[in-house]
Design a protein around this nucleic acid. Structure first.
Lengths: 345, 345
DNA sequence: TTGTAGGCGTTATCAA
DNA sequence: TTGATAACGCCTACAA
């Protein structure tokens, strides 16, 4: 008679406690809690009353185990966060939450071992996975990803084509920016590069070079200075460019943070933007419109990127195996402001 | 033999599959995978070999169920993200990851119903909870939080003193900033307020008023203009202040984003900062040092705040019930830059 | 050192 | 409409 459990300190109330208290079987409680239509009206009311009075909440792990559904998606991030990730997660969370899902996030260095460990730790805890890893180039450990486990790649180098993937139109965005500079008459256009080994950075550089080449502007190695996406790197890069024998007339930074760092260096050096040097960034972070002069940038709807990625994963979860991998590229738009020398109005 | 399972499509390999393949019992596999010292060296090697070859990974839900430990902590955020949350989560994730934990994040409107639903959905999925809710004023639903479920409040209004809590020294930081202005000779100091109903905002306002009162500077209602922590609000608030019959000589914005918005408005109006109006913000976001003039601000180590919160929760998870609730306030530091009129060098 | 078996809290398939 | 009961995949006494 309940003695089996009553002698121990139960800190949580289980379905059996409710069943006992309501004088029904656990099956009935389960039905009452989940699908109202399977139980008689009067019983339903009583059981539900008892359940809430006792503060009963179904145990997630137990439920996952038997239903083979966790209603959770895993989100694997690189080690370094930033405004970008914050926005992506927001888009993901908003989308999956509407479908009744949660996000299990985890960051890790994405070398093979750490990545595999992270994947392993998610087995039985998530129904699918979003992997965001702009620096990862190897192949995903297929063994750990058992069977046809749903995975969507976000902003990853396209090395593994077996999975759905989404990314930003880095190449197109960079191309449009440089093309815009060229249209304004610039020929000596510098680029502050993103982190080495980073997929976004590589694509933006490729777009920069292609635009120059297509306009028959020769590439100049000294105009491609290294950076790492931080304000400080932009600041340093701009100083390097200012010491060149022949200065550039325009600078394209691989992201807005570096553009703002560069802006600060130029201002300190007394160089007028955009009169002496035009400036453009990438990402169009909220701050871009509030610096002086307002920063021309390539707009990326980061939150939408997250939302679309999540939607793609949810689709994989619901549908039968379905189509082969889908590669999706989120378009960008050039936002022209004062820093590039155009009047915006 | 095994016909019971072999006829169905198994997409994942379980401990029984490994046991069968290795010719041992499931118990031995379990021991081999978890605690090496309980199994003979030769068996250990064989079983582990088979396990990795088959790509066996223990099922999280099953393990959680029997071990009564999920090794996951829940993080409940307000609906709106931002740089602040990104950093906090980073600090949390870094800390718990070292202890072998994951983060189950979820955002929600923190009215009673949604909050309760979010809490409920975490039952059996997390070992403890970090609740970040600067707008939440009600009491936590004690019923849903069964027993002595470990919860740490982060930046919440101190309405519920039954839980551990951490927050930023909003009052002290604001006080220091205003005190600094006063020390520079300012008497007419405006404040751009944070979002209504927000705990941080209220505390910063309180610090502002206290500093003025302590210096016997009379409060002027028209100098307290509303805001909501966004750049746009700062911009708008500054315009309001510029239209005052007697302009302030200093403006304290409740966060950096609004300060930068205000800066943009002042610049557009041709008002010199800091010569005509001094400016100060709060948070010391990375961007603060890169605007012109560089922004004086109250530095908050957000990532550390997250880390400390996580550490507190981990401590609760390991220790016996232990002490009563601990309230911890993370100190801030005033970072003086050009925007307030001091030479920084 | 290894195997057997019970149970973690649910849901789902049967009968009744 | 309701109640037994068998899984779900794993860990862990207890026995061998």
């Amino acid at each position: 008679m309940g003695a089996r459990t009553s002698h121990r300190l139960r800190t949580t109330v289980t379905i059996r406690d409710v069943a006992r208290a309501a004088g029904v079987s656990v099956a009935t409680v389960s039905r009452a809690v989940n699908s109202s239509h399977l139980v008689a009206g009067e019983t339903l009311a009583r059981v539900r009353g008892v359940a809430t009075r006792m503060g009963y909440v179904p145990h997630g792990a137990a439920r996952s185990l038997v239903m083979r559904r966790t209603h959770t998606i895993g989100v694997l991030l690189p080690d370094l966060y930033g405004e970008f990730f914050s926005e992506v997660i927001r888009g993901i969370d908003l989308t999956v939450r509407k479908a009744g899902y949660h996000c299990l996030v985890s960051s890790a260095q994405h070398d093979g071992a750490q990545l595999e460990a992270a994947l392993a730790s998610m087995r039985g805890r998530v129904d699918g996975l979003i992997l965001m890893s702009p620096e990862f180039t190897g192949d995903l450990p297929r063994r750990t990803l058992q069977g046809d486990f749903p995975v969507v790649l976000l902003n990853c180098p396209p090395t593994d084509l077996a999975f759905d993937s989404l990314s930003v139109a880095n190449y197109d965005g960079a191309y449009a920016m440089v093309r815009h500079f060229i249209g304004l008459g610039h020929r000596r256009i510098a680029m502050i590069r993103g982190a080495v080994g980073n997929f976004d950075a590589a694509e933006r550089l490729r777009g920069y070079r292609a635009a120059l080449r297509d306009a028959e502007v020769p590439l100049a190695p000294e105009l491609e200075v290294p950076g790492d996406f931080s304000e400080g790197a932009g600041d340093a890069a701009a100083r390097v460019l200012l010491h060149l024998a022949v200065r550039p007339t325009a600078i394209f930074a691989a992201n807005d943070a570096m553009a703002i760092g560069a802006l600060s260096a130029l201002r300190e050096a007394g160089v007028l933007v955009p009169e002496e040097i035009a400036l453009g960034g990438f990402d169009d972070i909220p701050m871009a419109r509030y610096v002086a002069p307002a920063l021309t940038s390539v707009h990326v709807d980061i939150s939408a990127l997250g939302a679309r990625t999540a939607a793609r994963l949810l689709a994989r979860l619901d549908r039968t195996p379905g189509h082969g991998p889908i590669r999706d590229i989120l378009p960008t738009t050039l936002v022209v402001r004062r820093s590039c020398g155009m009047q915006d109005s």
